[in-house]
């Protein structure tokens, strides 16, 4: 555990708190992509299957349970809550996320470090996480004025990915035999997807006006 990894995890946690806060406090999920949230639920389930048979640390196990719980809570609110589900902009959330799932599965079957059931699913979760934000980014472009909490949620998610890159650089320079090419390449692609969003987020923040993605 290093400071970048801890900061990354806490930023990830904070992003989920911000999103849940928006949904619960405003009773609205306007501008939030249910497809992205469902992809994250799939990511967490397939990655954290190791909760059942491997223990790394209490910290890891607790965080995994919290991430799983928050992902399913968000999907529950967006799809089933009697008030919130009516605020979901179905017609703006049209990204074909099934292609992302299928593509990630094919890639995980082709490129993985060990051809076992759990390792392939774990690799699939890494590939799927890299692209899971795409439906949300597309939806932001279509939404027009983006409320503060939704904008901050996506910003915090991007920050979390950036901090993980710093964590890898730190670990690579301090640990022996630390080499994770699949995770690194996926993570760099994932972070790069936020570049456009970051540009407009900081520009609008600087000009002190509501976030709009052209």
């Amino acid at each position: 555990m290093n400071v970048f990894r801890l900061a990354g995890d806490l930023t990830h946690l904070l992003s989920l708190v911000v999103l849940l806060l928006k949904i619960v406090a405003t009773k609205s999920c306007r501008g939030v992509s249910a497809k992205t949230q469902e992809l994250y639920a799939i990511v967490f389930v397939t990655r954290y299957l190791d909760l059942l048979f491997s223990f790394v640390s209490l910290y890891n196990s607790v965080m995994k349970v919290v991430f799983l719980g928050s992902a399913f809570s968000i999907v529950y609110f967006m799809r089933y809550h009697k008030v919130v589900r009516h605020t979901y902009d179905r017609e703006l959330d049209t990204f074909r996320s099934s292609f992302l799932v299928a593509g990630s599965m094919v890639l995980a079957l082709l490129i993985n470090s060990k051809y076992t059931f759990f390792e392939v699913l774990w690799t699939f979760s890494i590939y799927l996480e890299a692209v899971a934000i795409l439906p949300q980014l597309v939806m932001l472009q279509r939404t027009g004025n983006i409320d503060n909490l939704t904008g901050n949620y996506v910003f915090l998610l991007g920050m979390y990915r950036g901090l993980y890159i710093l964590n890898w650089i730190y670990r690579y320079s301090t640990e022996r035999r630390y080499w994770q090419m699949i995770v690194w390449v996926s993570g760099i692609i994932q972070t790069a997807l936020y570049a456009d969003f970051f540009y407009y987020y900081l520009k609008c923040w600087n000009e002190n006006r509501t976030l709009v993605i052209p």
Binding site: R5, D9, N60, F67, Y178, Q180, V183
Partner: peptide, 10 residues
């Protein structure tokens, strides 16, 4: 069993 690299990350 020592787990490889990123399996100890979230």
């Amino acid at each position: 069993q020592i787990r490889r690299g990123a399996h100890d990350e979230l």
